[in-house]
């Protein structure tokens, strides 16, 4: 088989696949951040903690109630989304009249509290979560071995991203959302309940984080720090894609996952920082992000 710059294709494709899986998480998480930022103008710093909660709730459902992966895939995002709903209703909504920085500070504090609570009760060693039976095993593609669960993560994230994109860009509900993002005062003057829309939008973005957490549970160990490690990269992804851009978040998420994978092949030392290097370059050349609109 072919070789590229002395790299065997197994290595290249293997790293690309790994990149695509990481990219799946980047895409779903940055999508949730973009949805929230678009309408609320708040950078949701607790997104990583809410992702971690998604994984933990899935684990708890199994450990305490015997509820398996497939139900958890629905129930956990709903539960985590509900906590987001309460957070918005009782805390975030009080800050909209102030500078956006206060929302960031609040969600940052909430993230630390949530992580601290989980660390206190469950330690940092991590809880194992089994791959569901249906998705155990893998496929031999000839050039590499593809674990079924990893393929599922990619498929599920694509479904979540496309579904969200469709809902926002193509439905009547999405039209309300886009309009309220542009001019909430006028949308309210048409008789639409904008505060409720903001609350549900925040809950939806948080639920997406929870969904990503459930997807991650069988791959990464379920531990209180899993979100904190990931979210910094996701923030960089959002900055590169453009704040609030739905399509930008999705494309940039997968794209940067792949670029990270490629870097791991050709220059492994740079793989941990390549996204931040790209972020710095994008900020200098096109500060509004690759898909963002300049104001």
């Amino acid at each position: 088989m072919f070789e590229l710059l002395g790299i065997p294709p197994q290595v290249l494709l293997g790293q690309l696949l790994l990149g695509l899986i990481n990219g799946s998480f980047y895409a779903v998480l940055s999508l949730g951040l973009a949805v929230i930022f678009g309408l609320l103008n708040i950078i949701n710093f607790s997104h990583g903690a809410q992702y971690m909660m998604g994984a933990f709730v899935a684990w708890m459902l199994l450990a305490y109630l015997g509820i398996g992966y497939w139900w958890a895939l629905i129930a956990s995002p709903l539960i985590v989304g509900a906590t987001g709903l309460l957070l918005e209703r009782f805390a975030l909504s009080r800050l909209y009249k102030l500078d956006h920085l206060y929302g960031l500070l609040l969600t940052f504090g909430v993230a630390l509290i949530i992580q601290g609570l989980f660390r206190n009760y469950y330690g940092i060693s991590g809880q194992p979560y089994q791959i569901p039976d249906l998705l155990s095993g893998g496929q031999n593609l000839g050039f590499m071995y593809l674990p079924n669960y990893r393929a599922w993560v990619v498929v599920a994230s694509v479904i979540a991203c496309l579904g969200t994109w469709f809902m926002i860009e193509k439905t009547r509900l999405g039209a309300y959302l886009r309009a309220a993002t542009e001019n909430p005062v006028l949308v309210g003057a048409f008789g639409i309940n904008v505060p409720r829309m903001i609350m549900l939008t925040y809950a939806f973005g948080v639920a997406l984080a929870g969904f990503a957490g459930v997807l991650a549970a069988p791959i990464y160990s379920v531990n209180p720090n899993m979100g904190a490690d990931l979210i910094i990269v996701v923030f960089a992804v959002v900055v590169i894609g453009g704040m609030g851009s739905i399509l930008g978040a999705i494309v940039t998420g997968y794209g940067l996952g792949l670029i990270e994978g490629l870097t791991r092949v050709f220059y492994p030392e740079g793989s941990a920082v390549v996204i931040f290097v790209i972020m710095a370059i994008v900020l200098m050349i096109k500060p509004e992000g690759l898909f963002g609109r300049a104001n």
Partner: peptide, 30 residues
């Protein structure tokens, strides 16, 4: 405002308030 609108009053604002991210039809049906 949203309750006043529900009473039966509607505003066509001076700056027109057409939404850039919505199609003409979506604007109309909003």
């Amino acid at each position: 405002p949203r309750h006043i609108a529900r009473q039966g009053i509607a505003l066509c604002p001076e700056e027109r308030g057409i939404f850039a991210s919505l199609s003409v039809e979506e604007n109309l049906m909003l």
